[in-house]
Simulated assay, not measured.
Amino acid sequence: MTHLRPIPVLQPGEAMAARLAREPRAFRLAELVAMSSERRARTAIERGEVVRLLPDAYVSSLHADSFVARADAALLWAGANAALSGAAALFVWGLIDAPPSQIDLVVPHTDRPRGPEWVRVRRVTWNLTAGRVGSLTLVSRDLAIVLGFGTLPRDSRGRVVYRAIATRATTPDRLAATLARVPRCRSRRELLARIEAAARGAESHLEEHGARRVFNTREFGQLVRQHRVRVRGELFRIDMYDAATMTAVELDGAAYHSTPYQRQRDVRRDAILASMGILTVRLTYADITERPQWCRSVVRDVLAVRRTTDSAPQRSAIGGMRR
């Protein structure tokens, strides 16, 4: 995993501090000296214009708190065989939105780097393959999920799995295969449950929660998960569908249903489905997570009413039902 690190070239009259300010990355002392001179490099360090984050890993003081600079410093310090892992790799891959305060690394078991608290090193005996994103070396998306899943807050773990699958960064089968070859990882059972839920068709934590915790009783066993219908040439995915009554149950997470555009899209969708006699019942994130019994009662009552009317294809179109 060794990669050449080009050394920036100073322009005539350009100060080292000004040049490094344009480089959110780490440098060895020898690189700073080669860029200018030993005297100018040490002067920049003494003035605090360049700071040492780790042994022989220096960054511009402007970028000392930057995730990219700190991640690059950790990789430079740990050696050519190191790779970003866990939440650090998940952030670089775009699978979590906020950079972690701790940098996770994996290294071969023969390497023994020891760093400060903000760097966590895992030594592994299994084959380690890594790729590159920009200037950073990191493990694959699948391995980042397996190693980082248990370190994330509980309310964000599912989103990582479903986002990776929804964006086609991985598949449930690939994730399961990667998990099988890693002997130790945190929250293994929970991750496996999420992978299995995704393999069954769940595309969000809310859908998984609804299927496992809310509509998991026998009376809702007839609901088809992730049903797809085509109306007027458009394909629609329904979270849960009762074929006998032509009723769609949608579990609306805030991330995809809260903006004016998204609400307008949902209204249009409900109208198109209603033109075929399909009634849409929408339940919000708060409904599903805070009052599951109410959700069961609403869906139960709607299905009961729909069963007592005429056959589904002959029903008049009904708009989406909301609280």
Rank of each mutant, 00 (worst) to 15 (best):
A166M: 11
I96A: 08
A164I: 02
I272R: 09
L147P: 00
R163L: 12
R306A: 10
R218M: 12
R218C: 06
Q102D: 14
R307S: 12
R213L: 11
L179P: 09
L53Y: 02
I278S: 02
F27C: 05
V106F: 04
L32K: 00
S258R: 13
I318V: 15
R291G: 08
W126E: 10
D97F: 09
N81Y: 13
R132W: 15
L54W: 02
R315G: 11
I7M: 01
G48S: 06
R123G: 06
E14T: 11
Y261G: 15
L273Q: 05
R263V: 15
L192P: 01
D142N: 13
W77P: 03
H205S: 14
R269P: 10
V68M: 15
V224M: 15
R263Q: 15
P100L: 05
W126Y: 13
G319C: 04
A18N: 06
Q222T: 14
A73M: 14
V214P: 03
R123K: 11
R189S: 14
A164Q: 04
R200F: 08
H205V: 08
S316N: 13
V106A: 05
V299K: 03
D266L: 08
T137F: 02
R70P: 10
R123V: 02
P6E: 01
A74H: 04
P153C: 03
R188F: 02
A15P: 04
G277C: 07
V133I: 09
D173R: 09
V92T: 08
T308R: 15
T110H: 11
L192D: 13
L175Q: 01
A74M: 07
L10F: 00
N127I: 11
T137M: 12
R232F: 07
Y162H: 12
M16C: 03
G115S: 15
F236Y: 15
S36Y: 01
V51M: 01
V124R: 14
S101K: 08
I318A: 15
L76P: 10
I96C: 07
R25P: 01
T309L: 14
V161L: 12
A44L: 00
L191M: 03
E14H: 08
W294R: 10
Y58G: 01
L53W: 00
L105Q: 07
R52Q: 15
L138F: 01
R22L: 14
H227Q: 14
V106L: 13
A248T: 02
I238T: 09
R184S: 13
D65T: 12
A69G: 10
E23M: 04
H205Q: 13
R228F: 09
A254E: 11
A312G: 12
A177S: 14
F149C: 06
D97H: 11
H3F: 08
S140L: 01
R47M: 09
V119W: 00
Y58L: 01
A64C: 10
A271P: 04
A211G: 09
A44R: 00
V224T: 13
D270L: 00
R232V: 04
R157N: 02
A166C: 09
M16W: 04
R52T: 04
V267C: 04
